[in-house]
């Protein structure tokens, strides 16, 4: 077991296949993320009695945005230009090393669950700094709120991941997923279910969905995430949008594979990858539909009630770890 993980990258068999699989994952998340957002929008519209924009609207908007003019506020530093790039790159690297389509992504032994958590943090920090760069009132307010919520949701995420890692005796994500495949009884264990509940809360907070944040608000004072990105236009905005969508896709895919790993490709074959891709799409779509249904049926929480929700998630995660230790 140990040997597999510490094999240096260059000597691992099928390096090209693994790189290919990782690229496939990045593309899947890059395309799938906006589609998932479109799906959630569609569900919401249907529930409200509207037809709503087509599911691919997000991708169409992206195509339009990259062709538009970029605008940077005067007096901004390089941070404003770099932040969207870092956001997308960090999400892409996280997508490349996470077992989404296959359990053998590239540098699977060089990254793990904690690395993915901190890669997500990197994206959040980049966005928050970008929000402060223009020196506007709302940008700073958005950064402040986003960091506050992140400061409480990140611990919940980390401890929820820990619950899984303790069960599998490793924090290596492919390791956790592979171990879950061979221990189906784990999936119904109390610590898994508690960790799942905690992770769902975190996913909602990290991706800025109701009841934590309302992605379609137009009122600056109620904004969290939108306020941070008020300043981006054209290609920059396209990057921010796609980065956010990738984070959503990544987190949903991760939740799907951690709690229902079947269908993921365990070998490097092309057919297995194809099956993995289709199954991943189906699993994440199912979760997205559930999240969207929850969204339409709840009201957004007051900003200062959100930490209570997230602290609840943190406690759930901690209970999950404890349960795992007690029932071992």
């Amino acid at each position: 077991m140990i040997g597999v993980l510490t094999v240096p990258l260059a000597t691992g068999p099928g390096l090209l296949t693994r790189i290919g699989a990782s690229v496939l994952q990045v593309v899947a998340v890059g395309v799938g993320g906006p589609l998932l957002l479109g799906l959630m929008g569609k569900i919401r519209a249907r529930a409200e009695g509207r037809i709503g924009p087509p599911i691919i609207q997000g991708l169409l908007d992206l195509r339009k945005l990259v062709r538009k003019e970029a605008i940077r506020a005067e007096h901004t530093s390089a941070v404003a230009a770099l932040a969207p790039l870092v956001l997308v790159a960090s999400a892409a690297v996280a997508a490349a090393v996470t077992p989404l389509v296959t359990t053998r992504p590239v540098i699977g032994g060089g990254a793990d669950a904690f690395a993915v958590v901190y890669l997500l943090l990197m994206g959040s920090v980049a966005l928050a700094l970008g929000g402060l760069d223009a020196g506007t009132a709302f940008g700073g307010m958005g950064s402040s709120r986003a960091m506050t919520i992140g400061a409480i949701s990140e611990p919940a995420l980390l401890v929820a991941v820990l619950a899984l890692a303790v069960q599998a005796h490793t924090s290596n994500l492919p390791g956790i997923v592979t171990a879950s495949l061979s221990h189906p009884e784990w999936l119904a264990s109390p610590e898994r279910l508690l960790a799942l509940a905690a992770l769902v809360v975190v996913v909602i907070a990290e991706t800025g969905r109701i009841p934590v944040d309302n992605p379609s608000t137009h009122l600056e004072l109620t904004m969290i995430h939108e306020a941070m990105i008020l300043e981006y236009a054209g290609p920059d905005l396209a990057l921010v949008t796609v980065g956010e969508a990738m984070r959503l896709g990544l987190l949903l895919g991760l939740v799907a594979n951690l709690f229902f790993p079947w269908g993921i490709a365990v070998s490097g074959g092309g057919f297995a990858l194809l099956v993995g891709l289709v199954v991943l799409g189906a699993k994440t779509a199912a979760i997205a539909v559930l999240v969207a249904l929850v969204e339409v049926s709840t009201a957004k929480l007051r900003l200062f009630r959100v930490p209570e929700l997230l602290a609840g998630g943190f406690v759930l995660a901690a209970v999950a770890v404890t349960t795992g230790l007690v029932t071992r």
């Binding site: 077991m1 510490t6 793990d112």
Partner: peptide, 9 residues
């Protein structure tokens, strides 16, 4: 069991 390679990241 655990490994990470920041250079690759």
């Amino acid at each position: 069991r655990g490994a990470i390679d920041p250079a690759l990241l």
